[in-house]
C-alpha cells in the first residue's frame, strides 16, 4: 500500500498491509497534526502534493527500504487537503524478520520522506498561514 490521498488514513489497514508469515517485527509510525509549532498555536494544516511525483517518490523509497534497509514489506500513506488537530497526516509501516531492521527502516523512511517527497505543509494560526520548509 503506497498512496497519497485526500481520504482519512485508516491506520489499521496500513498495518494490515505489511502482514506476512516471515516477518516477526512490525513497526508503525503515525504522524498526527499537532496544535503547536515553533512556539505558536496551530489551528489546522493544509497539505498539498505533486500527486504523480509524490507517489512515484514514495514507491522509490519503498524499493530502497527493501533493497538497502532491511525492510521486507513497506506501506506508506500520506494525506493531503485540510487536516484538523489530531488527524493522521502520514502512516509508515515496516515489517522485517526482526525488530532491529524494522525500527531502522521505519526511521529511515519517515526521515527520507520528509526530505524528498514533493508534499508541502501550510500551518494556520489565529492570524494567518505560512508554508513550511523543512530544509532551510
Amino acid at each position: 500500500m503506497i498512496a497519497v490521498s485526500q481520504q482519512p488514513i485508516d491506520v489499521a489497514s496500513v498495518l494490515a498491509a505489511v502482514e506476512g508469515p516471515s516477518e516477526g517485527g512490525v513497526v508503525l509510525f503515525v504522524g498526527r497534526v499537532r496544535d503547536h509549532a515553533a512556539g505558536r498555536t496551530v489551528t489546522h494544516l493544509d497539505y498539498e502534493a505533486y500527486g504523480g511525483m509524490a507517489e512515484s517518490e514514495l514507491n522509490a523509497l519503498a524499493r530502497e527500504a527493501r533493497a538497502s534497509h532491511g525492510a521486507a514489506r513497506v506501506a506508506l500513506v500520506h494525506r493531503t487537503g485540510r487536516l484538523a488537530i489530531g488527524d493522521v497526516a502520514v502512516a509508515v509501516a515496516v515489517a522485517s524478520s526482526h525488530r532491529g531492521e524494522a525500527f531502522a527502516a521505519c526511521r529511515w523512511l519517515i526521515d527520507t520522506l520528509k526530505q524528498r517527497v514533493p508534499i508541502w505543509k501550510k500551518e494556520w494560526y489565529a492570524d494567518g498561514g505560512q508554508w513550511i520548509s523543512d530544509r532551510p
Binding site: A49, M53, W120, D134
Partner: peptide
C-alpha cells in the same frame, strides 16, 4: 526543478513535451 516527475540536475537536457515543475523545499510528514 523536476522533469517528468523526477528531480533533475542543471545539465539535464529538456525536450518541448517534458513535464516541468518547480519544487520548493518539501515539508511533508
Amino acid at each position: 526543478v523536476a522533469v517528468n516527475q523526477r528531480y533533475a540536475r542543471d545539465d539535464e537536457a529538456l525536450a518541448p513535451e517534458d513535464e516541468i515543475a518547480l519544487i520548493p523545499p518539501v515539508s511533508g510528514g
